[in-house]
Simulated assay, not measured.
Amino acid sequence: MSLYSTLMEPGVIGGERMFRKLMLQVSVLASVIHIAFAVLFFTYDIVPLAIVNIFSVLLYMTVFVLIIRRRLIVISWLAVVVEIVVHATLAVYLLGWESGFHFYAMMIPPVMMVSPFKESMIKVPMVAGMMVLYVLIDHELRGAQPVYLLKESLLNSLYYFNLVLVLISMVFLSGLYYRLVVENAARLQQLATTDALTGLHNRRCVQELAEREIKNHRRHGLPLSVLMCDLDNFKRVNDLFGHLAGDRVLRNFSQVLNQQVRAGDLVARWGGEEFLVLLPSTPLAEAQAVAERVRQHIEQAPVTMADSEIYTTTTIGISELALEGVSLTMGNLAGDCFEQLVARADDALYQGKANGRNCIMLEPQAACEH
């Protein structure tokens, strides 16, 4: 899936969501401006333009309602494009090129590029057609005699008002596009580092964070421990209650883990029903106490599904970062050490499974020392 396709997904900031927001703001602003223009043109007895502005206000109010109800978004956008082109062309024809109404047509191509049309095969001809149309309007109406001759002071005021308004709109659009890029970058970063089901760090993210933590702890000689947690008989939960119940059990376990660790600890879904907890500045004894709290809470926190209560247990393997006799000059030490740290916790976990589950098991060397 391309980046553009990703941004167009309903759950991602941007795409249609951003376009709806833009259209709502344009509808409100355009309605206010057209009301002002209608009053102005009635005052100077330019009835055709006054009537056109009244219809424009009704159009933008209709567009606002449709966008709020999330209906006919593309048709609303096309109606706005037609309104801007027709209105600008008519105003230039009646009042002359010096009135500055042609500036509004220049706003359409950049907005087209973020319109709901996904295919460039549609967008490119639309943008190209809009550019050709603007050139034709320029060619035909720049030197044409206007139908209504306005005072030079009023004509200059209209020209600069339209120019400033379009420039402000361009700045607003640029700011909107910038926020879209920043928000989508943050969203994509979150999607790349977060497990969608539980909201925890995913495996890739915790590996990167753990490597930095290990380097720091080695440098300062601080303890660091890892918990490898596995839900017991999780396949049986899926088989008996269904995958929806299994998802709830996983989310419940992730909540228990978050509640029982400190703010600076790292909790991640390692894969399937396995979860990894990285405990910085935590020796083995303290890690064992954390693991015991987790084990007890999950045992006492059933998941309710319909009329059933699903009780689960967890087996936890624990390992501690070895600090003695390690060279700090080895460039690849952090990655290797993290893999070894996880491997030892994993070995302890499977030893706990072999011993009957629902227990805590220290890595083999630590278990001997204790």
Rank of each mutant, 00 (worst) to 15 (best):
S2T: 04
L3F: 06
S5Y: 06
P10T: 14
I13P: 02
I13T: 13
I13A: 09
R17A: 13
V26T: 06
A36P: 00
A36C: 12
T43W: 05
T43F: 09
Y44D: 12
V63D: 01
L66C: 11
V82M: 14
V85W: 13
G96Q: 10
K118P: 04
M121S: 14
K123D: 09
V132H: 03
E140D: 14
G143P: 00
S153M: 12
N156W: 07
N162R: 05
L167E: 09
S169K: 03
S169T: 15
V171K: 07
F172P: 00
G175T: 07
E183G: 12
E183V: 03
A185I: 12
Q189R: 04
D195M: 01
A196L: 08
H201Q: 13
N202G: 05
C205S: 15
V206D: 00
V206A: 04
I214S: 05
K215C: 05
M228A: 04
N233G: 08
R236E: 15
L240F: 06
H243T: 05
H243P: 03
L244N: 10
A245I: 03
S254T: 08
L257P: 00
L257Q: 02
Q259Y: 11
F275D: 02
L276V: 11
V277K: 02
S281R: 13
A291V: 02
H297E: 15
Q300L: 14
V303C: 09
L321H: 04
L321S: 05
L321A: 05
L323W: 11
A334I: 06
D336G: 07
L341Y: 00
R357M: 14
E363W: 01
Q365N: 09
C368M: 14
